[in-house]
Design a binder for these strands. Structure first.
Lengths: 135, 135
DNA sequence: ATACGTGCAAACGTTTTGCACATAC
DNA sequence: GTATGTGCAAAACGTTTGCACGTAT
């Protein structure tokens, strides 16, 4: 791994990500950090997100909106993704380690990470009393 | 849903996908179907994959190589993705329905689909006796 | 005859990269 | 002083789309 110097931009990106729990995209992070560093570029955001991911400080969450989402909570926790508004939420479910144990029963590679993602409508998007509206 | 006429290209795409169990990308499907229909275009492949997905005949599997993978097995089954060669494999694990039940304990939206994916090194890529080689 | 599908090429949105300058160490 | 980081703009990449023509029904 290459040496890593300090950078204010990287610091700002990381701290912004730690405060948020809604797993923003690179664009959202860029717009936010721009307030503090108006000359920052989107390329810098992407470069730093990649660096932070390489060092294991953040994780990348593939979504269904063809954008990557980023999460400063690197613990192994499940996610919910709304197929309507594309929001990403953390779910609370303890001890998912048994899943990889189960998987090993029929698999002989090496498992490093387990990703559990649920898709559906979030609480705000589900429409209890109305017919589905064509959008 | 729009009416759907028969098309030889769609048929070829679907049958190719049914025969394969390694969940190829659109490009791989294109290269293969091209042997049979040399004038087929990549756009046609994408359009038909989208149609087949809308009708529930195939499913899309997001991978970690920023390409979509396609699977003619639409049952809810877990996947393994190799972080080295980016191959996608099916795993055999019965009855994953309890996972969404667990998730509902701390979630009040509506879950339609559960996606369980393991990441690591596949059997071919794991190197039992050698140090990791920089690539 | 009409609606749906195709090939082609151009456009799209996200992410990456080459370069010259700036900053950290 | 040297390696690493940045801003900018252009390129790259997978995917989508507009259009005129082809095919299914």
């Amino acid at each position: 791994m290459k040496a890593m110097n300090y950078s204010r931009q990287r610091e700002a990106i990381y701290h912004f990500l730690m405060e948020r729990h809604d797993h923003p995209t690179a664009e959202v992070i860029y717009q936010q950090v721009k307030q503090e560093y108006p000359r920052i570029s989107l390329g810098t955001v992407y470069r730093n997100l990649s660096l932070l991911e390489e060092t294991g400080q953040i994780q990348r969450i593939p979504s269904d909106d063809s954008k990557e989402h980023y999460d400063a909570n690197v613990g192994n926790h499940p996610h919910f993704i709304c197929t309507k508004c594309h929001c990403v939420q953390d779910l609370t479910m303890d001890n998912l380690d048994f899943l990889s144990t189960l998987a090993y029963q029929n698999f002989n590679g090496e498992i490093n990470r387990t990703q559990l993602t649920f898709f559906g409508k979030c609480n705000a998007c589900k429409e209890p009393n109305e017919e589905k509206i064509k959008n």
